[in-house]
């Protein structure tokens, strides 16, 4: 990827700011998401809640299903490749979707290496639990970052933890004397040059969305108030009682995240949210956020 292409890829993500990206598993859901005001859809065969329930190895979705969704909507289409599975990424690039999510929701294909994203023209979004992880992904060529959260739980606690961790580490970087940055970067596995850039910009140099466990308009507004640039909703919409209504409500609450009156309006009469999971009730080996590093 040349520098100009990377610039365009970062800028597409900028155009998604303040918007909601929704997981969809078929054409019908993709249209519901688009009509509700989604800024992009994530095409996948099973939402994270079902991947969690079904167990087994989760892989890239059937490209025919992704192509059908791409055909059906005019908003950007994203799809997931397994961590380190650069051939799944090659397939998604040839398929000409708009963005690849190198995602811990799928079973990792490589426990040592993430995809070398600089080899691709297509943009990548990657998950992160802390600043070091975010900056390592940016160094590998990610054009957009999202929190990992704990996908498929309907429980926002991990997304909050990841965003607060990133914010805290950014504040630490800003406030420490320059000579401490080298050690801080080393201790947290941060590429030094990008750490310096974050210190100067007082935020990530690319867009950072919230993902993993967002299920209600209030969850979305919470993540926006914590400083996220936009929202991914996975299982939260199509595992709820009234997906179209909930999708619209989350779009509204994301746009007006600082206006409690509008978030209140958005929260009323939505029916059942997806059933949630306590993180502590999940066996450690089934936690998704620990995949990748």
């Amino acid at each position: 990827m040349d520098a100009k292409r990377y610039e365009l890829n970062v800028q597409l993500a900028q155009m998604l700011k303040g918007g909601v990206i929704m997981d969809v598993t078929n054409v019908e859901q993709a249209k519901i998401a688009e009509d509700a005001g989604a800024v992009a859809v994530m095409a996948l065969e099973r939402v994270p809640a079902d991947i969690r329930k079904d167990g087994g190895v989760a892989r890239m979705s059937d490209p025919a299903m992704i192509a059908a969704i791409k055909e059906a909507v005019s908003i950007p289409v994203m799809a997931k490749a397994r961590i380190g599975h650069f051939v799944e990424a090659q397939i998604l690039e040839i398929l000409k979707i708009d963005y690849i999510d190198e995602s811990e929701v799928l079973t990792p294909a490589d426990e040592e290496c993430h995809i070398d994203k600089t080899k691709f023209s297509i943009p990548f979004v990657c998950g992160a639990r802390n600043l070091g992880e975010a900056l390592r992904r940016i160094a590998e060529g990610a054009a957009m970052i999202r929190t990992k959260g704990e996908a498929g739980t309907g429980n926002v606690v991990e997304a909050v933890r990841h965003m607060r961790t990133m914010n805290r580490e950014i504040r630490q970087l800003i406030n420490m004397p320059l000579e401490e940055v080298t050690g801080f970067a080393k201790a947290n596995g941060m590429p030094y040059e990008i750490a310096l850039q974050v210190r100067k910009l007082e935020r990530l140099p690319v867009v950072n969305f919230a993902a993993g466990g967002i299920a209600t308009p209030a969850d979305a507004a919470l993540m926006m108030q914590l400083g996220c640039d936009g929202i991914f909703v996975g299982s939260g919409i199509f595992k709820s009682a009234d997906p179209a209504l909930r999708a619209k409500a989350i779009v509204k609450a994301t746009a007006y995240f600082n206006d409690p009156k509008k978030v209140l309006e958005a929260s009323m009469g939505l029916g059942e949210a997806m059933a949630g999971l306590e993180i502590a009730s999940i066996p450690a080996e089934q936690l998704l956020a620990g995949r990748g590093w």
């Binding site: 998604l16 009509d35 509700a36 005001g37 989604a38 908003i75 619209k248 779009v251």
Partner: peptide, 9 residues
């Protein structure tokens, strides 16, 4: 941005 989103809002 996305015209369908902005239009809805």
């Amino acid at each position: 941005g996305e015209s369908s989103c902005i239009s809805r809002l």
